[in-house]
Amino acid sequence: MSKTITIDGKTIPFEEGQTIMDAASAAGVYIPHLCHHPDYSPHGSCKLCNVSVNGRICSSCTFPAMDGQTVLSDTHELNEDRRRITQMLFVEGNHLCPGCEKSGNCQLQAVGYHLNMLDNHFPHFYASREMDASHPDVLIDHNRCIFCTLCVRASQQADGKDVFAISGRGINKHLIVNSQSGLLKDTDFEATDNAAHICPTGAILAKRQGFRVPIGRRTYDHKEIDQVSLAESGYRPNTTLIAETEQSQYDE
């Protein structure tokens, strides 16, 4: 007898060791997230994936699935929380989409679209943040960093390097580069690293790629992030099953 949880009333099987996020993704249920990526250990910091588990709020990317849990995710209250969190991310950094090469491919923006976020609600910080364009192939624009640590994890866990870290606390939190000069050019970072392509925003960008794909033809211009995210995490809508069923009809 396989173990199950329910998410928004839908019964979902899981395997021992899976988080609620893992189980949800495998079953085709999208839970909004920014710091989670299926290839890396969870971090649980962006809080967008917060769900109600038996009445308590938990990060679904870190909380283990357990038999019989009642999980609520796509509720008005949780989506309102998610929208406010996304708005805080927008006002804390400098996210000026019209001038950003990541626009249309940006997960922060796509989550905003998904949540129908039309304004930023809070006063803007206009924080003074630096750019590091020292590396020949990749640039860091700290204005757009949301401290998800995906580059930190990708560099350590996939690239076998240790290029990035988060330093400071609270409002002083910032991304740092592990070199004497603090510059990306003085690390062993390469454009082929997983960490060079993992950033959900436009904080880490490959150089000389600008407008290779025109605005209007980018990932989230026509597809919502829920479909894209589920496809990336390996979920396939049951098309093979449908195809097999159709095939078996012919066989008969």
Partner: peptide, 15 residues
């Protein structure tokens, strides 16, 4: 529009 909502490109002078 973007400028009315978050200052937009004119807000680049804020830095």
């Amino acid at each position: 529009g973007a400028c009315a909502i978050n200052g937009g490109l004119p807000a680049l002078r804020n830095f």
